[in-house]
């Protein structure tokens, strides 16, 4: 049974008895809080968040993201992470023994990397790093994208959703917090996985989604 969560518009007064207002809210009066997005209200623990239906990705420290190299400089790569601002990857933060000037050998424009946001400042300049477990250049595979606010839904509780898609389609999937998704496998399986991801994206605001995706995957595989 699917039911929708409460939909709010910018400026709508929030019922703060459900939880402490946190993300996507602003103070709009004495002890009153309003929504700053067009989205749904989500109550978790003692907090109340407004999750927008769409919107760009805003980097946060520690997020693991998928980025596309757009420019190679003498000591940095400029990387597009699907956010209003592009980010920088310094050669000292890469796993390779680079020397100034030979960065092209390792990453060229158009290459994708799975990286971690290392730091960011007040004017939204940010730096990413490849020096951590699991971070790497993504070779082969396909890239698809969903709006960043829907990423938690793609991953599911404890990774249940993405693991289900992985197992059912026998693909390797990496989900970046910024909404870019890398999928590797046989072309047919990749197409099925992309379809499943798009379905999650379109119905992210309904409940009981995992079961529906499961039957959808079976249907796609012709079982």
């Amino acid at each position: 049974m699917a039911e929708t969560k409460q939909i709010v518009m910018p400026g709508d007064l929030l019922d703060t008895s459900q939880g402490k207002p946190r993300n996507g809210t602003y103070k709009c009066g004495e002890n009153e809080f309003c929504s700053s997005y067009f989205g749904i209200v989500q109550v978790s623990d003692q907090f109340l968040d407004v999750v927008p239906f769409s919107g760009p990705y805003y980097p946060r420290r520690g997020d693991k993201v998928i980025g596309k190299v757009i420019e190679v400089g003498p000591s940095m790569w400029i990387v597009d992470i699907n956010s209003p601002y592009s980010t920088l990857l310094h050669m000292n933060d890469s796993p390779w023994r680079t020397q100034s000037g030979d960065l092209k050998k390792y990453l060229g424009p158009g290459d994708y990397v799975y990286a971690k946001v290392m730091s960011l400042n007040e004017i939204k300049e940010s730096w990413i790093t490849l020096k951590d477990v699991g971070l790497r250049k993504l070779e082969g595979g396909h890239i698809t994208s969903v709006p960043a606010p829907k990423v938690p839904r793609i991953i599911g509780k404890g990774g249940s959703m993405v693991n289900m898609i992985k197992d059912a389609t026998e693909t390797r999937i990496v989900v970046g917090q910024n909404g870019l998704i890398w999928i590797d496998g046989t072309p047919e399986n990749v197409m099925i996985a992309i379809k499943a991801v798009k379905m999650v994206e379109n119905e992210a605001h309904t409940t009981g989604l995992t079961d529906r995706i499961q039957s959808y995957l079976k249907e796609l595989k012709g079982e």
């Binding site: 910018p10 709009c28 700053s36 997005y37 067009f38 989205g39 927008p52 919107g55 709006p147």
Partner: peptide, 11 residues
């Protein structure tokens, strides 16, 4: 603007 997911105080 609202459907683009841009934060707004009001419509």
């Amino acid at each position: 603007l609202a459907s683009a997911g841009i934060p707004m105080r009001d419509l």
